[in-house]
Nucleic acid binder design. Structure first.
Lengths: 336, 336
DNA sequence: CTGAAAGCGCTAACAG
DNA sequence: CTGTTAGCGCTTTCAG
């Protein structure tokens, strides 16, 4: 193993000079900087990650709590996670993986053992039990999600409420008057998951404002459940012509189900969704959707956290405005 | 922050005694041990993770390279990852997440900066470019996967070749003579992914041995692709009655496609799969399958790695024998 | 069985 | 602009 003293000797300078050349925390002459860089390269030096922790307390590690609970679409969760990791790497950080089960204990442990400099928490509930803990910990944290009371926290997310509204408005503009929201699996609502609740709220607000007939149905992530919901909706709301889908797993099966029941998309039924663009594009009938910009949200979360670590003041709540892209799944209501 | 010296003072002993009481590396009197434990509890002491690294080189962190490449089913990959994390925690380790893109550079960086004590690598290719690197690194590693030349490495995986054979044998026993393997997306084979290649080999070996008519088709992870493959298979092999599916994403769509083409499962077509049991059970027609025991394989990987870290000798290759469970999707060939 | 003391590799005052 | 000197919190000799 090559240490900083080896580099120092090789470059004919003191260890601290090497350290400062690396950190840039004090001016170094061009000549010295060059020699140090040269020595580092030829010796293949890399600072021992653990050794910098005791004094300067930066371990260059961020902890990420990934949501792996019933009802959460793994593919979407992974988009967030991957973006967190790649963005963290760009800022020189590695990422420690915490699972949801040991979330509270894990957060406490990571903090108290100083295993990570900061924390990123996903799958936030409106009244998340972890919030008091996060507020009390002496490590900075960022939530991917928007709880009911974000005071004293840093949050970033898509503005799901606006997203729900945006979908309804799009349908209204196309003349639709009877609309439904097919949402996440029931347990997601039971837990009070923030993003799911906010979509419902946005959907309902806009539907009421526009005096639409509307319905909201949770839906399990199986084709069978999608089929059942489609049938139920048509029975209860025969005039249904507009749909908002907030459930990645059953977007395609649901469309299949409605077409199986004799409705053509978009002729008889206009479908909008809130989901990653790639998914909306890959469905048999490309779906008009509000993008769920997972990579962007996750990247922003890391940047906010890195900002906090650097002592910057950062905004408490960052909500990304919804962006709707029209695709083939929506059209004017027949006879509207 | 409470340090080891605080505990020592509180317990009326020296810091080294506290350290030894914690590690058990030298005998401590019952009385002292008790007092130390007591002080640790009341003060809420936790050893600073970074501080133990410099001398004793254990950071209690394992690095995991997760496969997030085209064609790999994220849900299955996550089963592995979660099991790695929970098992690692049981052994007192945390898990650092590395993405595939920076795999080689990441492995090198983690090793040289001593950010992790050991490495776990998933999604192994038969001739994986990372193998020489892993052999040369001075950190222990474990592969989840079975490359062509495992010399000098520690590997653990389901015996996919035997799994492929097992499915064919099951179909043979039920009287089927024309069988097909619907596999992973083409890019998975192009990369030479070990598990995919081995399934093909097992399938082919068994089919040839039994003198069956057989065909192998890769298949993209979309319902449309599944439908296309189903159509093609029936055109090219009108006598087809037995199927092996090794592609989690399209298991259900593929069955739908065949039934759409007029074949009933299992009356006209017997379907077997290699996939996690939960998935096989959750399909509309429960599928006879060889279990892909992700949690078990991942747990074993962690245990092997922890064993290596502890200086134990561990087996080079661990292959889990396939276990086939009959469900509703297979039956005797009509008229056989 | 237990203390005192010497580092681990690095950073950050303190001194030029 | 650079070198010398203390530590960080912990583990592990070295001495009882």
């Amino acid at each position: 193993m090559v240490r900083i003293t080896d580099v120092a000797r090789h470059a004919g300078v003191s260890p601290s000079t090497v350290s400062y050349a690396l950190s840039g925390k004090r001016p170094i002459s061009e000549e010295t900087r060059r020699r140090v860089a040269e020595s580092i390269r030829t010796l293949g030096y890399r600072p021992h990650a653990g050794a910098r922790t005791p004094t300067g307390r930066m371990s260059n590690v961020l902890a990420l709590v990934v949501p792996l609970r019933a009802g959460i679409d793994v593919r979407v969760a992974m988009r967030f996670a991957v973006s967190v990791v790649t963005t963290a790497r760009r800022h020189g950080h590695d990422v420690l993986l915490l699972t949801q089960e040991e979330s509270e204990e894990g957060l406490r442990r990571i903090t108290e053992t100083a295993s990570a400099d900061g924390l990123i928490v996903m799958d936030v509930q409106l009244h998340d039990p972890r919030l008091p803990l996060l507020r009390s910990l002496d490590r900075p944290s960022v939530l991917i999600g928007f709880p009911a009371d974000p005071a004293g926290l840093t949050c970033v997310d898509l503005d799901f409420e606006a997203a729900g509204e945006r979908c309804v408005e799009h349908l209204v503009r196309l003349g639709h008057r009877v609309v439904a929201l097919v949402g996440s699996p029931p347990e997601v609502y039971v837990r009070g998951t923030a993003f799911a609740q906010r979509v419902v709220r946005g959907f309902t607000t806009a539907a009421d404002r526009e005096r639409l007939t509307s319905a909201v149905h949770p839906c399990e992530a199986s084709p069978a459940a999608a089929h059942a919901v489609a049938g139920q909706l048509l029975r209860e709301h025969p005039g249904l012509t507009g749909l908002v889908v907030h459930n990645e797993a059953i977007l395609e099966p649901l469309i299949d189900a409605f077409e199986g029941l004799g409705l053509r998309v978009p002729v008889d039924l206009s479908v909008t969704a809130i989901c990653p663009d790639e998914l909306a594009e890959s469905v048999r009938v490309p779906v008009t959707s509000v993008a769920l910009p997972a990579a962007e949200v996750a990247a922003r979360a890391v940047e906010l956290l890195v900002g906090k670590l650097g002592g910057e003041g950062v905004p408490g709540v960052t909500l990304l405005a919804p962006r709707l892209t029209e695709r083939g799944s929506t059209g004017r209501r027949a006879g509207a």
